[in-house]
């Protein structure tokens, strides 16, 4: 038992943080706290998903939000048009995102470095433009969630509760996936690809297959989150579903906390969202919050490229054993 705890301590720390965030609105009993924690958890789950590709495999997906949007559209379509219930819709959102990631990944993961990054931007923009042209998805206006769909939860209040706890569950799930992948043979292969793809192949790592599965894994949870987010939001449209700016924020969360670590995306996403809230409530900084965030990011990239958790790990051997 002690041995198991010791080996998995790197998992328990991020899970405890998430548990704390999830419990906070419960303890304070405040709905506005719940909404604030919701946006943090969403960020954590998105960042942790991206980290599997970006941090472990070293492929810079700039348009990762595409899977969030795809999930959202798939989920809202089957709920509003075909009348599926939310459970199946979430499952479908995850499946569709994973499937598209598989097909897309087999093609674009051949590209390296900046070329891959550009292709992901292109895919996201193409999807945004495409959905705007598909009448079945509501074209540029998008789709609305009928209020009657909130009824099974006892109205909007119950729905908000339901979505919140679903996102908590998905956040826990993605952190467990992150940890298990990192500690697995598969994850070691991914990290070998990150360090030197050609050398990894010379050692027998089947890079094309491994990269594709990393891409699929990093797409599934965003797909599921997309369904929940837009269900809660009540509306989906191309500009909201495929917002490139959010995609880039995901990278910032990962970088800030510590790329390639399990805890990093949790810390990075949480800290960034809180800092932004602080900036937004400060009269002087409110107008230039984006510029302040930019300066912060620049400082991290230039001076602490390993992020907070990565920096702590490099400073202290004991922390290296505890923080994954």
């Amino acid at each position: 038992m002690m041995d198991f705890l010791k080996r998995t301590v790197g998992l328990w720390i991020p899970l405890l943080v998430v548990a704390g965030i999830a419990a906070y609105p419960l303890i304070t009993g405040s709905d506005s706290n719940r909404e604030a924690m919701f946006s943090i958890l969403l960020a954590i789950a998105l960042a942790s998903s991206l980290n599997i590709l970006l941090g472990y495999t070293g492929y810079v997906s700039f348009g990762h939000i595409v899977f969030f949007g795809i999930g959202g559209y798939a989920g809202l379509y089957v709920m509003t048009v075909l009348g599926w219930n939310i459970w199946f819709a979430v499952l479908l959102g995850a499946t569709v995102a994973g499937l598209i990631a598989y097909l897309l990944g087999s093609a674009i993961l051949r590209l390296r470095g900046g070329y891959f990054a550009l292709a992901t931007i292109g895919v996201n923009e193409a999807m945004r433009a495409l959905t705007g042209n598909i009448d079945a998805l509501g074209g540029p206006i998008g789709m609305d969630v009928n209020f009657s769909l909130y009824k099974p939860f006892g109205g909007p209040g119950g729905m908000l509760q339901f979505v919140f706890w679903s996102v908590v569950a998905l956040t826990v799930l993605v952190i467990i996936i992150s940890f298990v992948v990192k500690k697995s043979k598969f994850g070691l292969g991914l990290q070998a690809i990150r360090e030197d793809e050609d050398a990894a192949e010379d050692m027998g790592v089947v890079a094309p297959r491994a990269k594709t599965w990393a891409y699929v894994l990093s797409a599934i949870i965003p797909g599921a989150l997309g369904v929940l987010f837009f269900f809660k939001n009540g509306h989906i449209e191309p500009g909201e579903a495929f917002r490139l700016a959010l995609s880039i924020e995901m990278i910032v969360w990962v970088m800030l906390g510590g790329i390639g670590t399990v805890l990093g995306p949790v810390v990075g996403a949480g800290l960034y969202q809180e800092t932004r809230k602080l900036l937004l409530t400060n009269a002087y900084l409110k107008n230039i919050q984006l510029a302040v965030a930019g300066a912060l990011l620049l400082a991290i990239v230039l001076f602490v490229p390993a992020g907070i958790v990565g920096w702590l790990r490099s400073r202290n051997a004991r922390l290296r054993k505890v923080l994954e």
Binding site: L188, G189, Q191, A192, D196, A199, A200, G204, V205
Partner: peptide
């Protein structure tokens, strides 16, 4: 030489062992 720089020496060699002829577990 092409070391996997950010992995430990041991992890480098484990990659070789796990993905080599014997396809070993971790």
């Amino acid at each position: 030489v092409r070391p996997l720089n950010d992995l430990t020496v041991r992890e480098n060699v484990i990659v070789g062992a796990c993905y080599g002829r014997e396809n070993l577990g971790l």
